[in-house]
Design a protein around this nucleic acid. Sequence first.
DNA 1: CGCCAGGGTCTCG
DNA 2: CGAGACCATGGC
Length: 272
Amino acid sequence: MNAAPFNLDLTLESGQVFHWEKIGPGEWRGLIGETPVCIQSRCGEVFAEPHDVELVWNYFSLDHPLEEIYRDFPTDATSQAALSACRGLRIIRQPRWECLATFITSSMKQVAHIRAMSLEIRRRFGRKVVGSPTNAYPSPEALAACTESDLRACGLGYRAKNLVATAREVASGRVDLAAIAQLETPALRAALECLPGVGVKVANCVLLFAYERLDAVPIDVWIGRILLAMRRGRSGTATQLARYARRRLGPYAGYVQQYLFHHARVSPKFTP
DNA sequence: CGCCAGGGTCTCG
DNA sequence: CGAGACCATGGC
């Protein structure tokens, strides 16, 4: 299938999903939900095994209008540098529970360790998938049945309590992750923030990565520093930075944020 | 060893 | 609303 521009490496290395394994140049193995997939991208052409176009197209958001998004990119030097470095990076449509759960574990953790925790949670509590070395992400029910110390054994530390509590909210049906997709963004954000371990930042990650709200801007320490630098010294509280991001990053602010984040993180000489 | 990481929550001005 | 303390863990 043809999907230019699409850069698989950038997409899978930009801290959105944490379970894919690189098995060759531009070639990755992982799971889309519970379906094991091998995928390779060359020159805008995508090859996937199994050849399930619909599944791959949807997961990697190959329908997102990247050229239109690029036309709306901010014109400042920082954003344009991030754009030329990350062209072809796409915001993935993640399964909702998987996204919510992994970002609850993400607080004050580096990407590499989020990955390690996520893989351990899959290994211990996820359903085995034939043809995949990686297990599926455990269901809300499976994690709801865990104790806090079960999850501490996966390296979660104080995050274990929140993950179990949120799993129980979802498994019990008190929160329906599919039903709330119909809500407008402010109401959806509020619903997510009611869950234990979900604050402003994690809610925005879930809005962007699992609910297709492409204007949602997660502000972590990296993006915080970048926005502060873009504001030229004017000091910024969290609310000021959020307002600035909403005003300056345009209709696809979430995309811009993801490009800024990844570019900064892989630039050895990044000093805001 | 000290510092930092895709923060949330509670308390106190 | 804003600032601070506290929460665990691993990498460098």
